[in-house]
Amino acid sequence: MPVRRGHVAPQNTFLDTIIRKFEGQSRKFIIANARVENCAVIYCNDGFCELCGYSRAEVMQRPCTCDFLHGPRTQRRAAAQIAQALLGAEERKVEIAFYRKDGSCFLCLVDVVPVKNEDGAVIMFILNFEVVMEKDMVGSPAHDTNHRGPPTSWLAPGRAKTFRLKLPALLALTARESSVRSGGAGGAGAPGAVVVDVDLTPAAPSSESLALDEVTAMDNHVAGLGPAEERRALVGPGSPPRSAPGQLPSPRAHSLNPDASGSSCSLARTRSRESCASVRRASSADDIEAMRAGVLPPPPRHASTGAMHPLRSGLLNSTSDSDLVRYRTISKIPQITLNFVDLKGDPFLASPTSDREIIAPKIKERTHNVTEKVTQVLSLGADVLPEYKLQAPRIHRWTILHYSPFKAVWDWLILLLVIYTAVFTPYSAAFLLKETEEGPPATECGYACQPLAVVDLIVDIMFIVDILINFRTTYVNANEEVVSHPGRIAVHYFKGWFLIDMVAAIPFDLLI
């Protein structure tokens, strides 16, 4: 008679799926529990143990900040960024110097990925580790590398530091407007667009060049630039800015003055950032001319202004700041037409079709709590990747769950009947059967004279019903998954307890 339990259901295979997918890609990662103190490590794979030199037993239950890997060259700011990422709910990448158990130093890129439950609360953290440099290539500990984003994938490793954006290309926007319009339909740009040429040739750093990471940081200074100062900065030398009595002219307006920039070969870094931020506020060169004239017309309804409409929906549905990093990277690809469009465009503009998908598509409701890094690593669709929660398995109709209350009560009843059979069957065979043979035949009273025979008949009927119930009862397979398919249940029961239950259900007393 089957006594099969499996009270692990309803099970959740999400954690096993993450481990299996990460292991298949030869990654070095740990999984931490966000619900406990210090976000203790609950799993670390073999790749991480080989990377740091510690065994799994030495890593388990330690804080996922990996303070046991810190050393003299470990930056405090990087460690603080990892700790801050564990307090938030967004994906974050941090470069930090770690030390192995043998004392060797290596520069590592740590990717902190939160995993949320159905309520939107962070319950786990996945920390992925990628070695960037070994100890002989690690720089000085005073050099802070965590304020910069990861290198873009479309640049060669040897040319990542030679990417320079020439400031004269930004200063000569109005001069290039006529050349853009003359391109017409034969050019790649839309009317009114501004073409910015980027020099990728390796050259020595000069005062006129600005690194790509500095251009990325310009967006942080746009908020500090007032509207009046932006307007004066875009007017140009024809209309000098008016300053109040006793007030000095704005240095932001002076930063885009061609006369002032041409007199000296070098520009201050602050002026460069502010000038680029001011130019980015204009949607095209037409807006710059309109600002000089004193009238700013409404933005025209053409394809170039609607190019950012799908980007707005993608940004609203993005799951991490990696989408913004990807957008900034692609927006700086050289030799393309940049349409400086305000994100607050007309909502009635139709979304044009684009061959290049900048932001990841909208994630469906079932995966809105899973970050983009987890979705990318697992390579699963929205119909396959579940949320991290207890999910009731989908069972067929008329199927009994093996952990249901009805099955528990039924098993206790069958257990009592088995005990009765084990006690009274030998007793009936030894004593009652002998008395029946010696006594007179009682054929007239039937079952009324033999109450134990009636009980034995009921017990046999219950055993037959138990066999039928076992054909529709779920079970737990070797992978700790609840199986509810009727065919698989029948095959599993035939290979197991079916023969024993059938022999126990045969009414031998009635056959004798």
Rank of each mutant, 00 (worst) to 15 (best):
Pro2Phe: 06
Pro2Ile: 02
Val3Gln: 15
Val3Ala: 11
Gly6Cys: 11
Gly6Leu: 11
Gly6Phe: 12
Val8Arg: 11
Val8Met: 15
Ala9Leu: 06
Pro10Trp: 15
Gln11Met: 15
Asn12Glu: 10
Asn12Val: 12
Asn12His: 15
Asn12Met: 13
Leu15Gln: 03
Asp16Phe: 10
Thr17Ile: 07
Thr17Val: 14
Thr17Trp: 13
Ile18His: 03
Ile19Arg: 01
Arg20Gly: 10
Arg20Ala: 11
Lys21Gly: 06
Phe22Cys: 07
Gln25Leu: 14
Ser26Asn: 10
Arg27Asn: 06
Arg27Trp: 10
Phe29Asn: 01
Ile30Thr: 01
Ile30Arg: 01
Ala34Thr: 07
Arg35Cys: 06
Val36His: 08
Val36Glu: 13
Glu37Met: 09
Asn38Gly: 13
Cys39Trp: 15
Cys39Arg: 14
Ala40Phe: 05
Ile42Ala: 01
Cys44Leu: 01
Asn45Arg: 01
Asp46Asn: 15
Glu50Arg: 13
Glu50Pro: 01
Cys52Ser: 11
Tyr54Glu: 01
Arg56Thr: 01
Ala57Ser: 12
Glu58Leu: 02
Val59Tyr: 01
Thr65Ile: 09
Cys66Lys: 01
Asp67His: 08
Asp67Gly: 06
Leu69Asn: 01
Leu69Arg: 01
His70Gln: 07
His70Pro: 01
Gly71Leu: 01
Gly71Cys: 01
Arg76Tyr: 11
Arg76Leu: 10
Ala78Lys: 05
Ala78Leu: 03
Ala83Trp: 14
Gln84Trp: 07
Gln84Leu: 06
Ala85Phe: 01
Ala85Met: 03
Ala85Gln: 01
Leu87Pro: 01
Leu87Ala: 15
Ala89Lys: 13
Glu90Asp: 13
Glu91Tyr: 15
Arg92His: 13
Arg92Lys: 11
Lys93Asp: 09
Glu95Asp: 14
Glu95Val: 08
Ile96Phe: 01
Ile96Ser: 01
Ala97Pro: 01
Arg100Lys: 15
Arg100Ser: 04
Arg100Phe: 01
Lys101Gln: 01
Ser104Pro: 03
Cys105Ser: 14
Cys105Val: 15
Leu107Gln: 06
Cys108Tyr: 01
Leu109Thr: 08
Leu109Cys: 05
Asp111Trp: 05
Val112Phe: 05
Val112Asn: 01
Val112Leu: 09
Val113Cys: 12
Pro114Lys: 05
Val115Leu: 13
Lys116Thr: 10
Glu118Tyr: 06
Asp119Trp: 05
Gly120Pro: 07
Ile123Phe: 06
Ile123Met: 05
Met124Val: 12
Ile126Phe: 07
Asn128Ile: 09
Phe129Glu: 01
Phe129Gln: 01
Val132Thr: 11
Val132Pro: 15
Lys135Trp: 05
Met137Ile: 07
Gly139Cys: 10
Ala142Pro: 13
His143Val: 11
Thr145Ala: 14
Asn146Tyr: 15
His147Phe: 04
Arg148Tyr: 05
Pro150Lys: 13
Pro150Thr: 13
Pro151Ser: 09
Ser153Arg: 09
Trp154Ala: 14
Leu155Ser: 06
Leu155Arg: 12
Ala156Ser: 12
Ala156Lys: 13
Pro157His: 09
Gly158Arg: 07
Gly158Tyr: 15
Gly158His: 09
Arg159Ala: 14
Lys161Cys: 05
Phe163Pro: 15
Phe163Arg: 15
Arg164Gln: 06
Leu165Asp: 10
Leu167Trp: 15
Leu167Tyr: 08
Leu167Ala: 15
Ala169Ile: 01
Leu170Gly: 15
Ala172Ile: 01
Leu173Trp: 14
Thr174Leu: 06
Thr174Asp: 06
Val180Cys: 11
Val180Ile: 14
Arg181Ile: 13
Ser182Asn: 07
Gly183Val: 06
Gly183Ala: 08
Ala185Cys: 09
Ala185Gln: 05
Ala185Gly: 14
Gly187Met: 06
Gly187Ala: 15
Gly189Ile: 15
Gly189Cys: 10
Ala190His: 06
Ala193Cys: 15
Val195Glu: 01
Val195Lys: 10
Val196Gly: 01
Asp197Cys: 01
Asp199Ala: 04
Asp199Asn: 05
Asp199Ser: 01
Asp199Lys: 01
Leu200Val: 12
Thr201Glu: 09
Thr201Tyr: 03
Pro202Gly: 06
Pro202Trp: 01
Pro202Tyr: 01
Ala203Phe: 06
Pro205Ser: 14
Pro205Glu: 15
Ser206Trp: 05
Ser206Asp: 05
Ser207Asp: 05
Ser207Gln: 15
Glu208Ala: 10
Ser209His: 15
Glu214Pro: 06
Glu214Met: 05
Val215Gly: 12
Thr216Val: 05
Met218Lys: 05
Asp219Val: 06
Ala223His: 14
Ala223Pro: 13
Ala223Val: 08
Gly224Asn: 06
Leu225Val: 10
Gly226Glu: 06
Gly226His: 13
Pro227Met: 13
Ala228Gly: 07
Glu230Trp: 06
Gly236Asn: 03
Pro237Gln: 05
Ser239Pro: 07
Pro241Leu: 12
Pro241Met: 12
Pro241His: 15
Arg242Val: 10
Arg242Tyr: 15
Arg242Lys: 14
Arg242Pro: 11
Ala244Val: 12
Pro245Lys: 03
Gln247Thr: 12
Leu248Ile: 15
Pro249Phe: 07
Pro249Ala: 08
Pro249Arg: 08
Pro251Ala: 10
Leu256Lys: 14
Leu256Ile: 09
Ala260Trp: 12
Ala260Val: 12
Ser263Pro: 11
Ser263Arg: 09
Cys265Gly: 11
Leu267Val: 07
Leu267Glu: 06
Leu267Asn: 05
Arg269Ala: 13
Ser272Ala: 06
Ser272Val: 05
Arg273Cys: 07
Arg273Gly: 14
Glu274Phe: 06
Glu274Trp: 15
Ala277Val: 12
Ser278Met: 15
Arg280Trp: 09
Arg281Ile: 03
Arg281Glu: 14
Ser283Met: 04
Ser283Asn: 13
Ala285Phe: 14
Asp287His: 04
Ile288Cys: 15
Glu289Ile: 06
Met291Thr: 10
Met291Ser: 09
Arg292Val: 07
Gly294Ile: 08
Val295Trp: 13
Pro297Ala: 07
Pro298Trp: 04
Pro300His: 15
Arg301Val: 14
His302Thr: 06
Ala303Trp: 14
Ala303Ser: 11
Ser304Thr: 14
Thr305Gln: 11
His309Glu: 11
Pro310Leu: 08
Leu311Pro: 07
Ser313Ile: 07
Ser313Thr: 14
Gly314Ser: 09
Leu315His: 14
Leu316Thr: 09
Thr319Met: 07
Ser320Lys: 09
Ser320Pro: 08
Asp321Val: 14
Asp323Phe: 03
Leu324Thr: 12
Val325Ala: 14
Val325Tyr: 08
Thr329Asn: 14
Lys332Gly: 09
Pro334Met: 01
Ile336Gln: 14
Thr337Tyr: 05
Thr337Val: 07
Thr337Ile: 05
Phe340Ala: 14
Phe340Arg: 14
Phe340Trp: 15
Val341Tyr: 04
Val341Asn: 07
Asp342Pro: 05
Leu343Asn: 12
Leu343Pro: 12
Leu343Glu: 05
Lys344Asp: 13
Gly345Arg: 06
Gly345Asp: 07
Gly345Gln: 08
Pro347Gln: 10
Ala350Val: 05
Ala350Ser: 12
Ala350Lys: 11
Pro352Val: 12
Pro352Tyr: 08
Pro352Lys: 03
Ser354His: 08
Asp355Met: 14
Arg356Met: 05
Glu357Gln: 07
Ile358Ala: 07
Ile359Asn: 06
Ile359Glu: 05
Pro361Asp: 04
Pro361Lys: 09
Lys362Glu: 10
Lys364Leu: 14
Glu365Lys: 14
His368Asp: 05
Asn369Met: 04
Val370Cys: 10
Val370Gly: 04
Val370Leu: 08
Glu372Arg: 10
Val374Arg: 01
Val374Glu: 01
Val374Asn: 04
Val377Asn: 07
Gly381Gln: 07
Ala382Lys: 12
Leu385Lys: 09
Leu385Arg: 14
